[in-house]
């Protein structure tokens, strides 16, 4: 009697573990770091500092900008996008989501966030590319980059 219950328990534990591991067999999302690497030496901080602290920099700057109107370009979210995301690729803006709403490995922010599995909330409100306009009335360069 007792042994049977233990068996059932063991099976259930195994099943639970197996269900947790579903998806682990998939290969990690592809990392495309060409744009990032090309920009490293021009970035506002060394890349190891940026990797660890970019979220704190932009969070601090966001309060300064929204509440106090401070619009310096160091740590400015818009400046990050303007530098790291190309205005377009193959005639189309580079969006952080692909057409089937997966993180787009071609998008500088999305490529790492997909790799490490960290949610990327910024672009639910912010423009994810320098143009910020639909392809039809894209205003590449010009005023959008100011």
């Amino acid at each position: 009697m007792f042994g049977k219950a233990q068996n059932i328990l063991a099976t259930m534990t195994l099943l639970a573990l197996a269900s947790l591991m579903v998806g682990c067999g998939e290969t990690a999302p592809e990392l495309k770091l060409e744009t990032a690497k090309a920009k490293t030496e021009h970035c506002v901080e060394p890349d190891d500092v940026m990797r660890r602290n970019h979220m704190d920099f932009i969070k601090h700057q966001r309060d300064e900008t929204v509440h106090n109107g401070i619009r310096t370009s160091k740590y400015s979210f818009k400046a990050c996008i303007n530098c790291h995301i190309p205005a377009e690729k193959d005639g189309k803006p580079v969006n952080y989501l692909t057409d089937d709403h997966k993180l787009n490995p071609e998008h500088f922010c999305a490529t790492c966030h997909a790799y490490v599995g960290v949610q990327l909330d910024c672009f639910e409100c912010h423009s994810d590319n320098p143009a910020g306009a639909a392809p039809a009335d894209a205003n590449h360069g010009g005023t959008a980059h100011e």
């Binding site: 818009k78 303007n82 639910e124 409100c125 423009s127 910020g132």
Partner: peptide, 16 residues
């Protein structure tokens, strides 16, 4: 609703 293609100077998003 979810918003895409915002203007860089006018962040806009669902639920705000």
């Amino acid at each position: 609703e979810a918003i895409y293609d915002q203007k860089p100077d006018s962040p806009r998003g669902k639920g705000t």
